[in-house]
């Protein structure tokens, strides 16, 4: 699928649905979002962005450009000061702490640069944790994921006994086990060497593609960004 086709498809869908419920059209809509950290430093200024089902989008920018913040806001990890984020028809500004937690549990999956895993649970438990939390555990799918991610032999191990690449593969597995509509990843390969990086990214992209999930990925690497459908660059809290 060409990037252009994807875009075209997205536009088509959105056009087709615009007269019904606009929020059902786009999976993720970020509309003029503002975020200021305590102390008054603005991190995001009027950032707007759309992401549709099945799309992959790379968010790039320099350190401190606000890209991670934007991802955290989209993941309902934090609240914002202005504008609106709509995820699968839910306006995040209307949610309280518990509502945001429910949303994280049921609608998004996250992969961070590090400390993704729960140290006290073993690989198998980590893998299924999110899906079970969301009440959508599918053991067949879990074992498929474990096999596909090369984790079948590691299921009894604890995170501290895994390499960085293995830990990130578990994190991806956990994320995908819940069959999310949207996968959010923040520098998922940032702590890995090049080979491990490649593996992890390949696995992630192929799984996203297979499940039809959308992917919002924060990276500072142009090379990684180049493998996604779209790229948006943030600079000083604005989209360039």
């Amino acid at each position: 699928m060409e990037p252009g086709d994807g875009l075209h498809w997205t536009v088509w869908i959105s056009a087709a649905n615009s007269w019904k419920k606009r929020k059902q059209i786009m999976l993720l809509t970020i509309d003029r979002v503002q975020k200021t950290y305590p102390g008054g430093r603005p991190v995001l200024r009027d950032v707007s962005l759309d992401l549709d089902q099945g799309q992959t989008l790379a968010l790039t920018g320099e350190s401190g450009s606000g890209k991670s913040t934007l991802l955290n806001l989209a993941a309902a990890l934090d609240s914002f000061d202005g504008g609106e984020i709509t995820l699968d028809g839910t306006r995040l500004s209307t949610l309280d702490d518990a509502g945001r937690a429910r949303l994280r549990r049921n609608q998004v999956s996250l992969v961070f640069q590090q400390f993704n895993l729960i140290p006290s649970l073993n690989v198998a438990q980590n893998l299924s944790f999110h899906a079970r939390l969301a009440g959508v555990e599918d053991t067949t799918w879990n074992s498929h994921l474990a096999e596909r991610l090369g984790l079948s032999d590691l299921l009894g191990r604890f995170p501290e006994n895994l390499s960085g690449g293995q830990q990130q593969r578990v994190a991806i597995g956990r994320a995908m086990a819940a069959r999310p509509n949207l996968l959010l990843a923040d520098e998922p390969t940032g702590n890995l060497d090049e080979t491990a990086s490649e593996t992890v990214l390949d696995l992630m992209l192929s799984l996203v593609a297979d499940t039809g999930a959308a992917l919002l990925l924060v990276t500072h690497s142009q090379k990684i960004a180049g493998r996604l459908d779209r790229q948006v660059k943030l600079s000083g809290g604005r989209i360039q």
Partner: peptide, 16 residues
């Protein structure tokens, strides 16, 4: 914190 943060991120709120 490293114990709690992933659980929190996966959808448990702070009150819980």
């Amino acid at each position: 914190l490293p114990q709690i943060a992933p659980v929190w991120a996966l959808g448990l709120n702070r009150a819980q």
